[in-house]
Design a protein around this nucleic acid. Sequence first.
DNA 1: TTGTACGCGTTATCAA
DNA 2: TTGATAACGCGTACAA
Lengths: 343, 343
Amino acid sequence: MVTIQDVARVAGVGVGTVSRVLNHHPGVRSETRKRVLDAIEQLHFTPNPIARSMISKRTDFIGVMIPYFTRPFQNEMLRTIQHELALLHKELIIYNVESLSQRDYYFSEMPMHRKVDGLLIISLIIEEPYALKFCELGFPAVLIDAYSPHLTSLVVENMDGAYQAVRCLIAQGHQRIGFINGIKDGDFKFNQANDRLIGFHRALGEAQLLFDPELVIASEWNRHAAQDAALRLLTREPRPSAIFTASDMQALGVLEAARILHITVPAELSVMGFDGIELGELFGLSTVQQPIHELGVLGIKKLIELIEHPYQSSELIRLPTRLVERRTTMANTSAAPDTSTHT
Amino acid sequence: MVTIQDVARVAGVGVGTVSRVLNHHPGVRSETRKRVLDAIEQLHFTPNPIARSMISKRTDFIGVMIPYFTRPFQNEMLRTIQHELALLHKELIIYNVESLSQRDYYFSEMPMHRKVDGLLIISLIIEEPYALKFCELGFPAVLIDAYSPHLTSLVVENMDGAYQAVRCLIAQGHQRIGFINGIKDGDFKFNQANDRLIGFHRALGEAQLLFDPELVIASEWNRHAAQDAALRLLTREPRPSAIFTASDMQALGVLEAARILHITVPAELSVMGFDGIELGELFGLSTVQQPIHELGVLGIKKLIELIEHPYQSSELIRLPTRLVERRTTMANTSAAPDTSTHT
DNA sequence: TTGTACGCGTTATCAA
DNA sequence: TTGATAACGCGTACAA
């Protein structure tokens, strides 16, 4: 391996000078700089990032802790993050978490190892002791779709999103609205479910519709579980004329259930999801669109700021959702011939 | 930061001894080991991975170079890779490539920087000079769904897969079979398209069906482009009774085109994809299943071997595909009652 | 069995 | 403007 020493020798200067040209420090005569540059060129020298990190305490790695990173929502988030990071010449290292113990293992090791300059934590609950440790050690971390009072957190307005969705369904004349909520996923993922349930309640209450607990089921955040839940919901009498789900994947499960039961969507059943994953477009799924891209961009921005200036006080940022009406909720509006949002 | 020195001082031993217990070296009296362990515990000491890498020349990072990592096929591949890596306590760092220049930038920098212990290269063409450089420097790299004579390569039998698919369609009585192939994606991705075209030809030839160039279109590897291609294909007379595509995403585009044109699948049109992404199940898509999981597992295995013992000679491994018949190709079989692919 | 001293490749300090 | 030298934290000969 060719080192800075070799360069110095070939260029006939000291290592300090080589280091200075490498890091664009001022105060190097342009004639010597050229000699150094030539030597670098000639030897194909590349500075060793490891040795560099040793001194600078920087690795240019950014960690992303994320549950089930291949699922659509997380996946779209990662795409944004990766893109932003590439722009900054930082590298993305993924910590996929699928269990409580794994989550806590990462939380405890991460700030000690310092293999990454900072950490983005997505949709994950971080317990107080860990959060405090992060603060204490000045380890830069930003939460997305999760909240801790000690760390900068970016959250979406889940309650309001659910409220808007249900209000929209009610406006279309629905009286019996089913809700397939998400469960807490073994208590390790950030629990958006509760906020969404509150929003559901609020919209119902405001319209003076009576809340029927029979119409609310919690299922896992995936298609199959939601399909089962929907089958139960749709075989009860009288059956709901609309179903709202806590995620788009669950909504797809509902669509499948409807197909199995030969219930036409949206004529006989309206379906509204939550998330706004791209896959939803393919099915013409109406949904509550989360600001996935904005969350990613802003998360990186905040994290970088934190890396540059550690020990800043945390902040809580709320981002709004946006209701997207597509084919699965167009039943009862008279003036809506076809409004699928895409080809 | 607490260092090995602090531990040594507290334990009343030399740094060498601490290092030895840390690395489970034999020849430490169990009584002294305990003293060291206690000191470590007391000080919450964690060895600094950077300093460690400096000596060991290992980072425990594995790089994965992959085009468009959020697309379904790549995404499923990554899931396997991440899982295998987690088992080995190695960390996954993603190099997403979306252009030729980016690809070559990574290829040229990667073996110099040595930030990763090894590199998995997915579906990407690596040009000769880079491959040779990798060999020369003994930089461990394995190709998946790509080929270079100088590097260990894992490829799937694209030609045979396409051949089987088309043969299956012919067996079902189709005479006019359209083929939507993939284009070379700006020449930076590994070109499986050609092999698949050959397989298409072979099956046709074998059945003594005449090849109609009008029925072959190359589109980008995505849904929208394939949809356009399918619209063209399906509005020509006489129109094909079956369409085979080079990827599942393209097949989904065909399904959409059929929906737009009110052509029933599979009664009036059979559709066969290629890849076997999970999304396909949702649509009952018939397809040529790639051994995604096996490719990932084996790729990691080979890469780890290469890291442990560099400068091994390269090998070429071929994995077979598997034909999966679902709802979109069941037209001419008598036992296929309902098969609308979506709500 | 254990401690000391050196080296890994770089940046930063300080004197020249 | 430049060069020598001391860190950075760890692993490892080598000596004790």
